[in-house]
Design a protein around this nucleic acid. Sequence first.
DNA 1: ACAAATTTTTAGTTTTGTCTAAAATATAAT
DNA 2: ATTATATTTTAGACAAAACTAAAAATTTGT
Lengths: 218, 218
Amino acid sequence: MTLSEEDYIKAIYHLGKGEQALVSTNAVAEKMDTKPSSVTDMIKKLSEKGVVNYRRYKGVRLTDYGRKIALSIVRKHRLWEVFLVEKLHFSWDEVHEVAEQLEHVKSEKLIDELDKHLGFPKVDPHGDPIPSKEGEFKKAVKKLLSEALTGTNGVCVGVKDSSPPFLKFLDKNKIALGDPILVLDKEEFDGSLTIKINNKEMRISERIASNLFVEIID
Amino acid sequence: MTLSEEDYIKAIYHLGKGEQALVSTNAVAEKMDTKPSSVTDMIKKLSEKGVVNYRRYKGVRLTDYGRKIALSIVRKHRLWEVFLVEKLHFSWDEVHEVAEQLEHVKSEKLIDELDKHLGFPKVDPHGDPIPSKEGEFKKAVKKLLSEALTGTNGVCVGVKDSSPPFLKFLDKNKIALGDPILVLDKEEFDGSLTIKINNKEMRISERIASNLFVEIID
DNA sequence: ACAAATTTTTAGTTTTGTCTAAAATATAAT
DNA sequence: ATTATATTTTAGACAAAACTAAAAATTTGT
């Protein structure tokens, strides 16, 4: 696969929401920042190669083969993101651009050893799951933040209490849906938590933690 | 710079022996495994960009600007080689192909942090010096292996005693000119050394060590 | 010095991935 | 249902980087 082909495959994968949903030409064009006509050309090529199923005017979807390729790219991307954050002191919002380049490096040994070097992480710094070599994900589980163990990495996905005061609290503390959270410590005494969010450490009370839903990969 | 341009710049740099010597079109074509006509085309483009000086039929040489680019690529290549060997358990003869890909990743922060992560190494696993960010090398020094300190990385560059018995010894132990050597330990008692060569550890006597010249970056 | 051999360049194609403009199809609106 | 709008595809062109074949310049051999 060429660099460009890989980028299209990844775009189709993400637009298909990780499943093999039908994706429109325009959607791909927008995501890739190209023209729809270029997308049509590339889709035809990928179709020839058995990567996507394509019927003109109807859209594309990845084949099983195509999905496998997409997953291997996503795996590489996310492992590199972990590397950049854990080993090279990047913050989670700086990693994407660089991982975008690193994901195209071809070497099976490289990625296996990287995985080992990082201690076989299950999630990337944004809390997204890392596919296994065989292309399998750990399923995400939704919990209250207060139930998460020390060391877990999760993503903020919802609130239990949606009253204005609570929402105002979140807003003031720059906690938004989609933000990745790392639980650094749990205080036995009062159930308060030390978490890392948006690259800042902060301490939150049991009360807050038991009203925030997080998605966790275990 | 495109990927292809970077490859040409690196080839011209190496053929110019690290200095800005005049390099022939054919030499570049051979190194890059392309046709001379392709080289001419690319050289013209690089000349437009101020990377090389070019006079038709006469050959090319890097400009100071071109040399700077070449050194930054070499720096990246060699740092990645160190990473692959030290952190990901590659052996020194497996790293080239992968580093060849990694060297093209663009991110200043990436390479600075990688350098730091590796402890600012001065040589790559083949014993070649790593240019500094400013494009400066540590100069290589030639010594007898017996004079090298524990921990030094060097390359085998010559023999003092060139008698058949000594050469036969080297041959039998698969020690050849150009082999990288790492000094693991020095025995006070008899001056014997434990070295790593060709990915194998071995122990050699003071007598042997004082007849082998190595090039060392300090 | 001059012909022969070698090296290098030019001219004209090819492939990959992109683009624009126009045509074809599908979707939405009255 | 028919027109209007939006989406998608086709056709033709272009830039980058490669190639082949032929022409031009340089170097070598006598």
